[in-house]
């Protein structure tokens, strides 16, 4: 179904994931129709039966690589995409399903499935950037939909997306939120976690649990020591770094220091 539109062609792809990050685009209730005017939604299976062939100007990729088939598929998508953007913790860090990387996947398959021989899965869940060149990574579990719009808009105007790379800790300070760790002794990953959620958890009286993954050069070691001082057990610290961004290098390395 060839069209001759001059608008950039957008495609949305899914790998192992919960669908939440691509849902963020449909959750842009006020902007969705405007977005569909500005770009031509050429492939977005969750939203449309119309599936145009590539090449695409922008590909948004959700999910991590966990099967031999998907490890092939991502290369095809890269070849047909001018710009490839990964959205969310699964695509940028392997997601929560990367917890398998620390364990024996055969044991996992046996736990869940009666006939593990039917299941074709890789030993690891890995981010898209481990397989192909990625032009921009948008963090978060889930992503922040305002940031998604910012990234699309920036691309359309040929500028760099304005998505701050500082920590959640900084977002708290900017919002004037009282520090949960200093004021209440609540363990918080805010100092080492990438911004993007507007420091949501501290506003709800809980510590950050790392949805956006490590910020650049995080001092995880010092933070883990502070958690210990607050009484956190080895296991608690290990698990705190092993959630949705467990396979992001800085979080993985810190978690490995707290093995029993």
């Amino acid at each position: 179904m060839a069209t001759h539109s001059k608008r950039p062609k957008l495609a949305v792809w899914k790998f192992a994931s919960c669908d939440g990050c691509q849902l963020s685009l449909l959750d842009c209730e006020d902007e969705l129709l405007a977005v569909s005017e500005a770009v031509e939604i050429a492939y977005f299976a969750e939203a449309s039966r119309a599936m145009q062939k590539g090449p695409y100007d922008i590909s948004l990729v959700e999910g991590s690589i966990t099967t031999p088939h998907d490890a092939e598929r991502i290369h095809q998508i890269r070849r047909s995409s001018r710009v490839l953007i990964t959205i969310g913790a699964c695509a940028t860090a392997g997601g929560i399903q990367a917890l398998r990387n620390f364990k024996n996947v055969k044991e996992f398959t046996r736990t869940v499935y009666a006939h593990p021989e039917y299941i074709d899965t890789l030993k690891t869940s890995t981010p898209i950037s481990h397989h192909v060149k990625v032009d921009f990574e948008l963090r978060g579990c889930p992503i922040n939909k305002a940031q998604l719009l910012e990234v699309i808009e920036a691309l359309l105007h040929g500028r760099k997306p304005n998505t701050p790379a500082h920590s959640v800790c900084m977002e708290c300070k900017l919002a004037g939120t009282v520090c949960v760790m200093v004021a209440h002794g609540t363990p918080c990953l805010g100092p080492v976690t990438h911004a993007g959620c507007d420091a949501l958890c501290p506003r709800y009286n809980r510590g950050c649990f790392g949805c956006y993954g490590p910020k650049e050069s995080p001092n995880t070691h010092a933070l883990a020591a502070e958690w210990q001082r607050l009484g956190a057990q080895l296991r608690t610290i290990r698990h705190a770094f092993r959630n949705f961004n467990a396979w992001a290098e800085e979080f993985r390395k810190e978690s490995e220091k707290h093995e029993p």
Binding site: G20, R235, H239
Partner: peptide, 23 residues
Amino acid sequence: PPRFFEAFLRGRNFVEVPDIVAR
């Protein structure tokens, strides 16, 4: 692709369960 939630919930503290299963 399977994601093995039942398997990696093992050993986690019960307080973490709602955050994990949401995913």
